[in-house]
Simulated assay, not measured.
Amino acid sequence: MLRRLALTAAACFAALAAAPAATALPVPVPVPFALPGHWLPDPQLRDRLTITVSDSGARAAEGTHRLTCTPAGGTHASPQQACDRLDRLAADKRTPFAPVPAGMMCTMQYGGPATAHITGIWQGKSVDATFRRTNGCEISRWSALEPVLPHTVG
């Protein structure tokens, strides 16, 4: 969509430059807009995530929430604490959205039915990660992201 906008704007400016000054008419430039229920994030925001949580046992955390950082905001229950956690992980050079490596030995414990799906941008990189609490490695991944993800009781 941004590419189409840029190409349209470039074509409009080229047409204006080629037209004689006396006959030049203003040319409308398309502006992106948000339809009701759609979210267009500010391009200046570095971190913007959509977090969908289910079966966590934390009623307030269930559903889909948005988190923006720099500045902290969105519909997340604790945006400042969540952004602070992401900042700490970045300072430690940790990648919290990476999956459990293939072949990793994980304890066989069950942390409950909670699931979460996180999409968006973090540190300028695309995020599409799924979290569960089905074994020790997955529980550890989830816990490392609290309070971005809600605290659960397995």
Rank of each mutant, 00 (worst) to 15 (best):
L49H: 01
L45F: 09
P43K: 05
T68I: 06
F97T: 09
P79R: 02
P36C: 04
P113F: 08
V100G: 03
P79D: 08
G57K: 11
T50M: 10
L89W: 08
D84W: 06
Q44H: 12
D87K: 14
W122K: 06
R88L: 10
L86V: 02
Q44T: 11
R46I: 06
S126W: 04
R59D: 15
A98P: 10
H38T: 06
C69L: 06
A77D: 14
L67Y: 03
H76A: 05
A129F: 02
A60V: 10
P101N: 13
T64M: 10
H117K: 08
T130L: 00
T52G: 13
A58M: 06
R94T: 12
A58I: 03
T115Y: 08
S56W: 05
A98R: 15
D92L: 13
R59L: 14
T64W: 13
P79L: 04
R46T: 11
C106G: 08
D84Q: 15
G57I: 15
A60K: 13
K125S: 05
L67I: 01
A58V: 12
D55Y: 11
D92A: 15
D84V: 10
P99Q: 12
T70C: 06
A91E: 15
D92P: 07
D42P: 03
A60I: 07
F131D: 09
T68R: 12
L67N: 01
V127L: 07
K125H: 05
S126R: 13
D128R: 00
V100L: 03
H65T: 05
L40T: 08
S54A: 15
P113Q: 11
A116N: 10
G63I: 03
G74N: 05
R48H: 14
R88W: 07
G111A: 05
M105E: 09
D47F: 06
G124S: 08
G120K: 02
W39V: 11
T107R: 09
